[in-house]
Design a protein around this nucleic acid. Structure first.
Ligand SMILES: [Mn+2]
Ligand SMILES: [Mn+2]
Ligand SMILES: [Mn+2]
Ligand SMILES: [Mn+2]
Lengths: 218, 218
DNA sequence: TTAAATTTTTAGACATGTCTAAATTTATAT
DNA sequence: ATATAAATTTAGACATGTCTAAAAATTTAA
């Protein structure tokens, strides 16, 4: 039996090591979960016991095959539920994350399967985040963060890498959502902020915002 | 903040005192929840602290207004989720209870409201159990248990009072579901078992089964 | 109305998950 | 190479919810 807390730790390690595939440090996990380093140390020992992570004292931890499968399933559930909330219950994309944090822990394989089918097997959630498949594969996105785009080129917003309400509400205010076309007009070298063109209007956004916008070049 | 365990205790007291409106004893609660009497004593003290129950040592407990509102909301969620699972995700009526036991603890008023709307404001769940309204009212059923029916009269199955898989699977095997018309042919006084007519065929069922079938006379 | 049976509470223990503060290890910089 | 800083672990405490066994109260029945 795996507990809700254990699932949250596994998910954190999973998301933190998605790109790097390297060991994750105690402090990084603590920051992600919003807990103390001491608690993380305690939990890593338990997860090691259960063969869900490989953990070496003072060196950090990474997921075992079993741990990764579990973590992937939690992320899958999180993103399927977010999709359900937006597509079926008309939630706003900024309102779903917190509820999905609860729903991702519901244990019923049949429920996940049926939900997936009910939603017509989506590959991406309302934030453009890829939904892991039942066997743990992660749909490919082929995108770059807006700040990495070459000046003068244009692209379409495919996703965001944060799904906090404040960020998403701000995007909505800027008229940015999934599918929006953006042209990068100018990078300000002083603070790396960007001048961009959305539809017909020019806008100015910070580096902080730009790096969380995933763009597919047209 | 109310915990998952506290919600389960409140729900148990709520369901146990639905008809009687009287104090519920420690042992009865323990049996309902499947825990020890000692644990119930502990928890009743905590719920008393939080003004969710009125509790007198050795005398049992009943819900305060606040406690009843909370309990009713949990039951409401349980039954809405069961309805969702059957009506939208094509679960069998015997498969939904355990999943609903988890889903009933998800905290989001908006989610409940939207789910209710998505399901077109149902008054009864897949077992014919009434779904409490947002303000705690319980739809009236106007039914009698099959064993209380007069010999020779007929009625329609409106609900069941148990939603365990074994019971529901047996009903399905007997060709009984919500809406089925049943005529009571004969009561055997020896064991209070019943001879009944479903559609065109005669069947024999125990008292134990009959008392959990709610019938509306035609 | 007193003794026995039943119910309920208390006492003490344990598991889980968390915290702060102190100790230890590792990394960084002179 | 050594001192200092940073990261991590350990120690000890606490809250929650559970359990079994023993004590106390209540109910039932002789
Ligand atoms: Mn999310
Ligand atoms: Mn998302
Ligand atoms: Mn149920
Ligand atoms: Mn039900």
């Amino acid at each position: 039996m795996i507990t809700l807390s254990e699932e949250n730790y596994l998910k954190a390690i999973f998301l933190l090591s998605l790109n790097t595939n390297e060991k994750v440090s105690t402090n990084i996990i603590a920051a992600e979960i919003g807990t103390s380093a001491a608690s993380v140390s305690d939990m890593l020992k338990k997860l090691q016991e259960k063969k869900l992570v490989e953990y070496e004292k003072y060196k950090g931890a990474y997921l075992t095959k079993k741990g990764r499968a579990l973590a992937s399933s939690v992320v899958r559930k999180h993103r399927l539920w977010e999709t359900f909330l937006v597509n079926k219950l008309n939630f706003d994309w900024g309102e779903v994350h917190d509820v999905a944090e609860q729903l991702e822990h519901i244990k019923s394989e049949k429920l996940v399967d049926r939900l997936d089918s009910f939603l017509k097997y989506p590959s991406f959630d309302p934030h453009g985040e890829p939904i892991p498949t039942k066997n743990g594969e992660i749909p490919d996105t082929n995108t770059v963060p807006l700040n990495k785009l070459k000046t003068g080129t244009a692209g379409k917003v495919m996703g965001v890498t944060i799904d906090e309400k404040y960020f998403l509400d701000y995007l909505t205010k800027l008229n940015i959502s999934i599918g929006t076309e953006i042209k990068l007009l100018e990078k300000i070298s002083f603070d790396q902020s960007l001048n961009i063109k959305i539809e017909t209007t020019n806008q100015h956004i910070s580096h902080e915002v730009a790096k969380h916008l995933l763009i597919k070049m047209i």
